[in-house]
Simulated scan of single mutants.
Amino acid sequence: MPRALVIEDDHKIAELIKIHLKDLHYEIDHTLDGLEGYEMAKKTNYCLIILDLMLPSMDGMEVCRKIRANDIASPIIMVTAKSEEIDRVLGLETGADDYIVKPFGVREFQARVKAVLRRSLGKFENQSSTNNQIIEADGLSIDLDKRSVQKEGIRIELTPKEFDLLSLLAASPGKSFNRQSLLNLVWGYDFEGYEHTVNSHINRVRAKIENDMNKPSYILTSWGYGYRFNENI
């Protein structure tokens, strides 16, 4: 059975989340503490992490930041309150894949979980419509079926969102995507006003695949518009 980690210090909400995940046939590990949750995430390859923002020892934002800094690619759904709009933006920028606002119902929660996992396992239509399931570009190899990336034969660990961004751009070299389009295509929701989230994720991908962040050769900036994958490599 797939295993999920729930990092939530509100007992009632934690129990609700666990019930919903069990209905989706998950085995569940649960902790009330942010630091302990981070340590658990380092030791176990979870297929999903549900992460509250307000936690003892280490807040959810820092937990998410540290998880991504350790190249842990598990999909993360943040649990936020309605008043925490800025935190939802920052959560996405630090590497969360989605968020859900308290209070939430069973259908909304399970729909968000399924959507995150579907996007982390699936491929974009314009990729699957091509016969070439491996994209090669100047030492960079992107396997769309295995959702893996190698550079010069060395595997590069990307989060689901980082992989989706890279593979979407690489599947259409030379085509410029604006930030709003990337938000809609990769996150699957209309996150209007969250365009800076794209910048943060692009920077993380560049840090992992580029030889020089200041002179990128794979992901180029289309000034005043968005980003594109270099068609000349």
Results as ranks from 00 to 15, higher is better:
143 D>I: 05
39 E>S: 10
52 D>T: 03
173 P>K: 10
198 V>S: 04
6 V>P: 00
54 M>D: 15
212 D>E: 12
207 A>L: 10
185 L>G: 04
66 K>H: 08
161 K>D: 13
5 L>R: 02
136 E>W: 07
168 L>P: 04
89 V>P: 01
49 I>K: 04
152 E>Q: 11
182 L>I: 13
188 G>M: 07
7 I>M: 03
57 S>F: 07
66 K>T: 05
20 H>S: 09
222 S>G: 15
29 D>M: 02
190 D>E: 08
125 E>Q: 13
202 I>F: 01
213 M>L: 14
190 D>A: 13
13 I>W: 00
232 N>V: 04
89 V>H: 12
147 R>A: 11
164 D>Y: 01
148 S>W: 00
87 D>T: 09
163 F>K: 09
224 G>E: 08
26 Y>V: 02
135 I>D: 01
55 L>T: 03
97 D>K: 05
228 R>G: 05
129 S>N: 12
78 M>Q: 11
147 R>W: 02
41 A>G: 03
63 V>P: 03
68 R>M: 07
173 P>D: 06
9 D>V: 00
129 S>F: 14
192 E>I: 13
8 E>A: 10
128 S>F: 08
163 F>G: 11
86 I>P: 03
146 K>H: 06
215 K>Q: 12
221 T>F: 02
23 D>G: 14
207 A>S: 15
193 G>N: 09
32 L>K: 13
98 D>L: 03
88 R>V: 04
81 A>Q: 11
189 Y>T: 07
50 I>C: 13
7 I>L: 02
212 D>P: 05
72 I>C: 12
177 F>I: 04
39 E>W: 01
17 I>F: 00
32 L>Q: 09
77 I>H: 06
80 T>K: 03
139 G>E: 08
19 I>V: 12
58 M>H: 04
125 E>N: 14
14 A>R: 05
154 I>Q: 15
24 L>D: 01
124 F>R: 07
48 L>E: 02
81 A>H: 08
121 L>D: 09
20 H>Y: 15
163 F>L: 04
6 V>T: 01
56 P>M: 09
187 W>F: 12
81 A>M: 08
155 R>W: 01
17 I>P: 01
205 V>S: 11
19 I>G: 09
53 L>C: 12
147 R>N: 07
51 L>H: 07
